[in-house]
């Protein structure tokens, strides 16, 4: 309760400062637009459906890119977790690639696929794949040897042991990996859209900036941030919490 009140006062102060500052012309509206003009820009975008189309376009790419990155990441992670040789060789490469921001791949993606949607999706895939792979790998490696021994005494081995015990036992890491993959893919997608073509939230952001519509710029930024927060807190953190509880990992 205390925290909620503190937060409300804090945000109210920021909003009041923002709106009053704009009205008293402490800064030029081209540098930073007023809150009310941002809201009316958002309302306008929703009414003529351009923002809706942007949202749908961005989410389509995200869905495709994230799905592919989760599948590839899971497969690479399993390979790294199960094979020492793969871990020593490919694992080192994945670890290095993980530290390269995925937007860096855009120029090469444009060369390969052209300045179109495919290049953006490619960058989104790279954004999520490596972090998913590394988490999956850790998950497989951290499966309690006790589970494996117990399953072996019950006649499980080989692929059966993997599907029924090792993979489910590493689900907590799969969830964490997916959550991070989503966050990385979302950032990669926005960067990709900013630098390539539309429609999409990122593209609209640049387009609005080119035409000096700072109210739309701020509005779209608020949407991007809000989506990121909602998906993370409402979906992933909830799943993560319930999995941690069920898998008995609570400290």
């Amino acid at each position: 309760m205390q925290t909620a009140i503190k937060r409300m006062i804090f945000f109210a102060a920021i909003i009041a400062f923002w709106e009053l500052g704009s009205r008293m012309e402490l800064w030029h509206p081209l540098i930073f637009p007023s809150l009310s003009s941002v809201f009316s820009a958002l309302a306008e975008g929703l009414q003529d459906k351009t923002l809706i189309y942007d949202l749908i376009a961005s989410f389509k790419r995200l869905a495709v890119g994230l799905a592919i990155s989760l599948v590839i990441g899971t497969l690479i992670g399993i390979l790294l977790g199960k094979s020492k040789t793969a871990d020593d060789t490919l694992g080192a490469v994945i670890l290095a690639l993980q530290s390269v921001p995925s937007i860096v791949w855009l120029p090469i993606a444009i060369m390969w696929f052209g300045l179109n949607e495919k290049a953006v999706i490619f960058v989104t895939i790279l954004g999520g794949t490596f972090v998913m792979a590394l988490n999956m790998r850790t998950g497989i490696k951290n499966v309690s040897p006790l589970y494996i021994k117990a399953a072996q005494t019950m006649g499980a081995n080989g692929i059966d042991l993997f599907i029924r015990v090792i993979f489910p036992a590493s689900i907590p890491y799969v969830v964490t990996g997916s959550r991070l993959a989503w966050a990385f893919a979302w950032r990669a997608l926005m960067a990709g859209e900013l630098l390539s073509t539309g429609p999409g939230l990122g593209y609209t952001l640049r387009y609005a900036s080119d035409f000096g519509r700072m109210d739309i710029v701020i509005g779209v930024m608020i949407i991007i941030g809000a989506i990121g927060m909602i998906v993370d807190q409402l979906i992933f953190q909830r799943i993560e919490k319930s999995v941690i509880k069920k898998w008995g990992l609570e400290s």
């Binding site: 021994k149 117990a150 036992a169 689900i171 069920k246 898998w247």
Partner: peptide
């Protein structure tokens, strides 16, 4: 039967 129950939590 092990010292820890080794039940599968899922």
């Amino acid at each position: 039967v092990f010292q820890q129950a080794a039940l599968f939590p899922w």
